[in-house]
Each structure stands twice: as structure tokens, then as C-alpha cells.
């Protein structure tokens, strides 16, 4: 049962990710990206990472992609026009690089060259579920990085607000407002 579900989600993920790249309308691209993030959340659930799966939907599908949609609607973007020799060349190069990367990745995965090191015999305590286990690790061993990311978020928040607000106009009035 689980492998079939995995294959289903994987197929959906690849198809929607391709549509993100191929579709000419940015809004449609963004919607396909939401779909691919959601199917990735399904894969996380199958890999027994329930907490990460749910956070994936909350953060990516619920917050980040809404922000993308807002910006696309705010800028009122229509279909992309992509014509001309330069773009054709770039497209050729892009797909070629992609094919090469896929080839290398396939070789590495097939030869088992990713050597993940010895496998831990004892699984971590899963009493109380995945979320509690993650919390226990996050607030003990990873406490310092956790605090650092909170500062990073603060910096990003201030930066985004400052950038979007614009400079005050010359006559001292407030600049363009959102």
C-alpha cells in the first residue's frame, strides 16, 4: 500500500513541478507549485515525518505561496512572452544542463555512491509522536541554531518592510504606501 502511495505522490510531484517550469502564466505556475508542495507533504507523511509534512503545508502552501500569488496579482502579470533566438539558445542550454544533471544523479543513486554512513540501530524515542520527539531534540541539542533562526526571521521581516515602504518623498511626506 505504502509504496503505491509513494509512487502516486511522486508522479504527481514530478508532473506538477514540470508544469511550474513549463506553464507560461505565472498564476498557474504558482498554483501548480502549491499542488507539488502538497504532494511533497504527502511523501513526508509516508516517510513518517508527520510534523514536517504538516508544517510543509502550513509554511509553504499556506504562507509562502499566498505571498507569491499576492505579488503576482499586485503586479498584474499576464502570460510571459518568450520569443527570439537568444531565448531559444538559452532554452537549449537549460534543458541540456538538466539532462546532464539527471544523468549524473542517476549514476550516483545507482552505484550507491551516497554512502550515508552506519545506520543507527536504535530509533529515537517516538513516545508521544513525531512532534514531541522533534521538540525534544530542537530545544536541547539544536537550541542555539533555533534562536539564531528567530533572529534571521526578525531581520528578514524588518528588511522586507523597509524595502517595500519606499523612501519618504522630498517634501517630507510619506512615500508610496502599500
Amino acid at each position: 500500500m505504502v509504496p503505491y502511495l509513494f509512487l502516486g505522490f511522486a508522479g504527481l510531484l514530478i508532473a506538477t513541478a514540470l508544469m511550474v517550469v513549463l506553464h507560461k502564466n505565472p498564476v498557474t505556475s504558482a498554483l501548480f507549485l502549491v499542488l507539488s508542495f502538497t504532494s511533497l507533504a504527502g511523501i513526508y507523511l509516508l516517510l513518517q515525518a508527520e510534523f514536517i509534512g504538516m508544517v510543509q503545508i502550513i509554511v509553504y502552501a499556506g504562507a509562502i505561496m499566498v505571498l507569491f500569488l499576492f505579488v503576482i496579482m499586485y503586479l498584474n502579470l499576464q502570460h510571459d512572452v518568450e520569443k527570439g533566438a537568444q531565448i531559444a539558445v538559452r532554452r537549449g542550454i537549460g534543458w541540456m544542463v538538466g539532462a546532464l544533471m539527471l544523468l549524473f544523479a542517476g549514476l550516483i543513486v545507482r552505484n550507491g555512491g551516497f554512502s550515508p554512513g552506519p545506520v543507527q540501530a536504535v530509533p529515537p524515542s517516538l513516545e508521544g509522536g513525531n512532534a514531541q520527539a522533534i521538540g525534544r531534540v530542537l530545544y536541547s541539542r539544536f537550541l542555539f541554531p533555533f534562536e539564531i533562526t528567530s533572529i534571521l526571521l526578525l531581520v528578514a521581516m524588518v528588511g522586507a518592510i523597509v524595502m517595500i515602504k519606499g523612501r519618504p518623498a522630498a517634501d517630507g511626506a510619506e512615500g508610496e504606501k502599500e
Partner: peptide, 24 residues
């Protein structure tokens, strides 16, 4: 999972190289 991850990464790379819309 690793193969899937590789495919997904490649699609991302192709998207960056092929498209000219900054949002995409």
C-alpha cells in the same frame, strides 16, 4: 526518495535556466 529528490532538483535547475520571469 533520492531519485525523486534528484529529479525535483533538476526540474528546479532547468526552471532557473530556461525562464526569464523573476517570479518563476
Amino acid at each position: 526518495s533520492l531519485a525523486l529528490s534528484a529529479v525535483l532538483f533538476t526540474i528546479g535547475v532547468v526552471g532557473v535556466l530556461v525562464r526569464r520571469n523573476a517570479l518563476v
